[in-house]
């Protein structure tokens, strides 16, 4: 382990004070369930789905048919399961992907 030299030792106090002050001014975005939106499967029209980021997943504008069960759209929280989806077994959008009914 290296010994911090004087300049770094001063910085530690400065940095901690700055970070502390910044934290008292702002709060970090709350984790997980707080977003104003939810991912809603089965409500997007053909080609109008939003992105599902990450390797090997489908992405924005790639859905092939209207109301595709494994394509999602970002919608205001709470509205998904109230949005009609003709392909959905429940008749409404779902928070998980589903297999469209025939």
């Amino acid at each position: 382990m290296t010994k911090p030299h004087a300049q770094n030792a001063i910085s530690a106090i400065t940095l901690a004070a700055a970070l502390g002050a910044a934290l008292s001014m702002t709060s970090a975005p709350v984790a997980a369930a707080e977003g104003a939106n939810e991912h809603c499967y089965g409500v997007a029209l053909k080609g109008k789905n939003d992105c599902k980021a990450g390797p090997g997943t489908t992405c924005a504008g790639t859905s092939k048919v209207d109301y595709q069960g494994n394509a999602w759209k970002s919608v205001p929280k709470g509205s998904c399961e109230k949005t009609a989806s003709p392909t959905s077994p429940t008749g409404f959008g779902q928070l998980q992907e589903f297999k469209e009914k025939a």
Binding site: S11, A12, L19, L23, P29, A32, A53, C59
Partner: peptide, 24 residues
């Protein structure tokens, strides 16, 4: 289209602050 990641929350920032000597 970038990968998802969860932003650091307040508790994690506070615990980083507790280790202030290591901050630099």
């Amino acid at each position: 289209h970038a990968a998802d990641a969860r932003p650091l929350d307040n508790a994690a920032f506070q615990s980083a602050l507790a280790d202030s000597a290591a901050l630099p």
